[in-house]
């Protein structure tokens, strides 16, 4: 059964490494849903966090293919239970006077922030687990959403240092 997986890949921070990892996914016929990349504390390494929808066999195949890449130091699947996962949402909603305060109220419940307010629209920023972001989007779905932008998941394992 296909399932959303979060993979954390520690790589050498070289030109082309991201292309290599992303290219491998594309070549093997898998779609990356979200992707974030950043340098680690040691700037000679980067961490790629990506999500993709995969069944168990596909997951094993991708993990072992990725692990073979020369510049990949490690790859592991992350789970809600052992890691902190966060994503940022920016959503622009067109608002009229009668619904603006209602939307601000919902945003407050989700601990989001209104980062731009114009006479006929506003931009809300929300940080949280992907599920929280999903839930928020569902709740505001019947407002007039103009555009949505999500950063994709970034994640670190709890405890255990690496």
């Amino acid at each position: 059964m296909k399932q959303m997986r979060v993979l954390s890949i520690l790589v050498e921070n070289n030109a082309g490494t991201l292309t290599r990892v992303a290219g491998l996914f594309a070549r093997r016929g898998y779609n990356i849903d979200t992707l974030t990349v950043s340098e680690t504390k040691d700037p000679s390494f980067s961490r790629i966090t990506l999500t993709a929808s995969l069944n168990d066999l596909e997951l094993n195949q991708l993990v072992s293919q990725t692990a073979k890449l020369e510049e990949v130091i490690s790859i592991e699947e992350l789970f809600e239970t052992n890691s902190v996962m966060r994503e940022i949402l920016l959503v622009k909603v067109s608002v009229s006077d009668d619904c603006r305060s209602k939307l601000i109220e919902i945003t407050d419940v989700y601990k989001g922030v209104v980062v731009d307010l114009s006479p006929d629209s506003m931009i809300i920023e929300l940080t949280g687990k992907p599920q929280k972001i999903d839930a928020f989007i569902r709740v505001i779905d019947n407002y007039n959403i103009v555009n949505i932008c999500r950063t994709g998941v970034t994640a670190l394992q709890r405890g255990k240092g690496d």
Partner: peptide
């Protein structure tokens, strides 16, 4: 020798 050959085409 290659882990990724395991279960690739035939389980």
């Amino acid at each position: 020798i290659d882990q990724s050959e395991i279960d690739k085409n035939v389980v």
